[in-house]
Design a protein around this nucleic acid. Structure first.
Lengths: 208, 208
DNA sequence: GATATACGCTACGACTCGTAGCGAAAGAGC
DNA sequence: GCTCTTTCGCTACGAGTCGTAGCGTATATC
């Protein structure tokens, strides 16, 4: 996405620079926040010139989107044999990611900027939000294959339930860790999973 | 809070200016976002000099905290006779507030800045988060008085349940409206309330 | 009146964004 | 080997912002 087609003739780009810049962006975001992050500082941390940043990303916004998206792509939904275990595992992963100050500052700063910039908002949804719904879809498919959940009645309802479940899980965890500032202990994750499982299994058993 | 003790001798402050400045701050935040908001612009919108802003609030951060806190103080928990109706009513109020772009940008921008600035974070919790937990407490008390929920087993568990319920409600609504960008329709509020009521009544009926 | 504060205005230093121009480096194609 | 193309680091720049300072004036209390 950043460099769709590599250059054909001239001097090739430093392959290591992309990773170094994105890491430096997250690091700077952790220490300084969105408002405190400066392109010059990121360049120094990454060991490149400021102009190199602008040669690869058009603005601060796009750079941070790329940095955060790369971070969240590491989330995975494992099939541990039960819906409860799967949910607890992915929530634990998510919480661990969100406990890193760099991810905290990056995510919220991005969301905040996205509320005013429709283009950035769309980029955030495309690059960050939508890809993560795969986790809900994968977890439900596994549960259905194990017989823990019945198959969805129709395509439309399946999509709607993915959205509401994703909003509830992501929203609650994000709110607890970023807004309330409390850590997500194993006990809390267990309690939240219980809260989530009750209506999930019931609604699934008797839709309508 | 802003001016704890009024001045005793000199020229008194313009009483209307505070409200005008806070309103102008929210308006500017809606149009320009945190990054785009400038103190000079707010001053022009409010019809005062920039120095007047700094005479009343020490920085941009504090000004926005005050502007958002004032906005959220309008939320109320009404006793409508049933727990479901009470929850739906307060969620509807909250969603209506969050549908205003000025509140969206303000809240998220504030949360984002708060992740890096511990002092600001504490101010946000004191002035914005904690006061709103009164809604959960009031709603639960009313439900217990009506016999819909049993009384809490101990003080500590009561506080923990307030926290988890608050995180779930606020987090889910915020995430849906601000991150996913979907509006909170009456159907969605109803479905979410159902999802919330199941474990609430069950856990309350058989704690542990 | 004397005093003390708030007000509007202008100017300022320090900082950041994003761009432009320079010479040099590192590959591709002939 | 030689040319062409692109990237690189560096420096400098214009525009814009934060937060402060100084000035003269307005408006209150003592």
């Amino acid at each position: 996405m950043t460099a769709p087609a590599g250059p054909r003739k001239g001097r090739p780009r430093n392959a290591d620079a992309d990773g170094a810049i994105l890491a430096a962006t997250r690091e700077a975001l952790a220490e300084l926040g969105w408002g405190g992050l400066t392109m010059g500082d990121v360049a120094v941390r990454a060991g490149v010139a400021k102009t190199t940043l602008y040669r690869r990303w058009p603005s601060k916004n796009e750079l941070v989107v790329a940095a955060v998206a790369e971070q969240l792509d590491g989330l995975e939904m494992a099939d541990l044999g039960s819906l409860r275990a799967d949910i607890e595992a992915v929530v634990t992963q998510f919480a661990a990611l969100l406990s890193a100050p760099e991810t905290q500052a990056a995510l919220l700063a991005l969301f905040a900027e996205a509320t005013r910039d429709p283009l950035l908002r769309q980029r955030v949804r495309e690059a960050i939000i939508e890809p993560q719904k795969r986790l809900v879809i994968a977890g439900r498919a596994a549960a259905q294959a194990r017989g823990e959940l019945v198959a969805d009645t129709c395509e439309e309802m399946a999509r709607a339930s993915v959205d509401i479940i994703f909003d509830t899980v992501a929203g609650t965890v994000v709110h607890r860790m970023l807004v309330s500032g409390e850590p997500a202990t194993t006990e809390w994750i267990s309690a939240f999973t219980t809260l989530l499982l009750h209506p999930l299994t019931e609604i699934s058993a008797q839709p309508g």
